[in-house]
């Protein structure tokens, strides 16, 4: 066995092992601590869990590819809110008044287009100015949030379209609409990252940017495409979620970037880029959601969830460091 193979295998399987541990723990602990009589591993409960994972999960898929590419996007929460507002607001615009329910696809399209454009805007700025993605998206996180407030001030934007609600609450083959979207996004991005030239080049850029440049890979367009994808997915996440809820607060989506990054890092994507997978991220998303639901199940409040997730994130980092320690003769710098 090659040195490092063990740690590699551990790391790849770790998130799923963690999920299994969570399931066992909450099932067993639930027997003694739970206030309700329902078992934790209830079928309906698990379906609901997947549905609730979707909003963060869909964005996390985008964050995975952006981070594999060696960048980061802090503006997803704000993009999410903008897309939500456009979705709900545009359905009441007078020019679409004659469309009837056909306004739905139009509104969806507008929201998705807006998200994609905002993502691409981040990408172009990163590409053309050479400013670090962290700073660029930190700025646009503020800027996009400002745009959110421009629509309706501090008031919520609401519009319930029952056709839309029905669609969002539908269950096809047992899975909720939102779950389907999460599954499709995961599959598509898995395919893109493992099977297409764009995906493979994105890995190469994140892994060793200089080598990629020397090999003639055009770094800028790849980065921009990935930013556009994450913008699109932030909008898609909003579209899926707000079709059902029908009301958006201008502060919605705040701190999403942090949840999303936590899920991605738990899923094993390297913060410096070049390594990671959307499947791992799916694991990370589910693990977080399980933790939330599970802690709720055994009677802990939301505060514990935050505490536990934060500490787990750090524990993962410590573990990763321990697994990667080189020989004792290593230079101490």
């Amino acid at each position: 066995m090659q040195p490092g193979a063990l740690s590699d295998a551990l790391k790849k399987g770790a998130i799923w092992g963690f999920i299994v541990l969570e399931l066992i723990f909450f099932s067993v602990a639930g027997e003694y601590l739970s206030l309700s009589d329902n078992a934790f591993m209830d079928y309906e409960n698990m379906l609901l869990l997947l549905k609730q994972s979707a909003p963060i999960g869909i964005i996390a898929m985008g964050m995975t590819i952006v981070m594999i590419n060696g960048n980061i996007d802090l503006s997803v929460g704000a993009t999410y809110a903008i897309a939500a507002i456009i979705l709900l607001d545009s359905m009441t615009w007078p020019i679409f008044a004659g469309l009837g329910d056909w306004v739905i696809p139009v509104a969806w399209l507008l929201a998705l287009l807006a998200g994609t454009m905002l993502g691409a805007l981040n990408g172009i700025i990163v590409w053309k100015t050479g400013v670090d993605a962290f700073i660029v998206t930190l700025g646009s996180m503020l800027g996009f949030r400002g745009i959110v407030f421009m629509f309706n001030g501090e008031n919520p934007t609401s519009h319930l379209n029952w056709t839309l609600v029905d669609f969002a609450e539908a269950q096809v083959l047992g899975l909720h609409t939102a779950t389907w979207f999460l599954a499709i996004v995961t599959l598509v991005l898995w395919y893109v990252m493992t099977r297409t030239v764009h995906g493979r080049n994105a890995y190469a850029i994140g892994d060793n940017r200089e080598a990629a440049v020397n090999a003639g890979i055009r770094v800028g367009p790849h980065m921009m495409i990935n930013f556009a994808i994450i913008g699109f997915l932030a909008a898609l996440s909003a579209v899926v979620f707000y079709s059902e809820s029908g009301s958006v607060n201008p502060n919605d989506g705040q701190l999403y970037e942090l949840w999303v990054i936590t899920a991605v890092v738990l899923g094993g994507t390297k913060i410096t880029g070049g390594a990671g997978s959307v499947i791992g991220t799916l694991g990370g998303v589910i693990a977080i959601q399980l933790l939330r639901k599970g802690l709720g199940h055994i009677g802990a409040d939301t505060s514990t969830v935050n505490l536990v997730i934060g500490l787990i994130l750090i524990a993962v980092l410590v573990l990763d460091r321990q697994l990667n320690v080189k020989g004792k003769e290593e230079l101490k710098v």
Binding site: L258, T262, V305, N306, L307, V308, I309, G310, L313, L317
Partner: peptide, 8 residues
């Protein structure tokens, strides 16, 4: 992580 943990 500490952001989340301290919040909790």
């Amino acid at each position: 992580g500490m952001l989340s943990a301290i919040h909790g």
